[in-house]
Amino acid sequence: MALLSTKSITKTFGTLEVLKGIDFTIEPGEVVAVIGPSGGGKSTFLRCLNLLETPTSGQVLFDGEDLLAPKVDLDRLRSRMGMVFQQFNLFHNLTALRNVMLPQMNVLGKSKAEAEAHAMELLEKVGMTHRATAYPSQLSGGQKQRIAIARAVAMSPKLMLFDEPTSALDPEVVNDVLDVMTDLAKQGMTMIVVTHEMGFARKVADRVVFVDGGVIAADMPPEEFFADDNANPRVRDFLNKVL
């Protein structure tokens, strides 16, 4: 059974129709790269999946539950979906360690000791134990993003959503973050990654979804997507520009 699926979701901001009916499915353990031109609706799509934006119409099913059902416990479902933002969005008023601990304690009800032990373990994985007591303002972009990933992973989510996690980073630290994400993928995490990193899409993703003009214009394995003979002229056009 699919871990998450959407049925013809649309999203309209005022008169601007950003999503025009998206059908999408992801199986457990799959890594899907979402790419496409700027303004095509990638972020809006991703934010509709955990209801940071409420779709104007359509259906979102996650883990067997309808996210748009009237009485659904959204907080509980969201806790099973980690999200990583382009701008990191670490909690400014908390240290790195506390950032990773707070949701565990507040949402999962873990004790302080448990949360701290788990947080230190994950900071270790992302190579950030030495900065555990630093506040976000004292960290570089790459460090912040690795901590943000640790914060999301600490909730033991079934699905991770990434919205251009490396776009705001200096080129030399992009790989630090991509390495962390690659490790996660290898451990079997289900991931939807909006990205402009074609190398990552090609090597790590199981599928590439091309969002353009508010619809999924292509959905195929990376070998096919990046093949020179891709039949879709808009994909070819896009790839010519970014590669």
Binding site: L52, M83, N89, F91, L102, V107
Partner: peptide, 14 residues
Amino acid sequence: DKGQMEAARSCGMS
């Protein structure tokens, strides 16, 4: 910054 609220909510915090 509204990203603070979004980050908290997407962790499942009320």
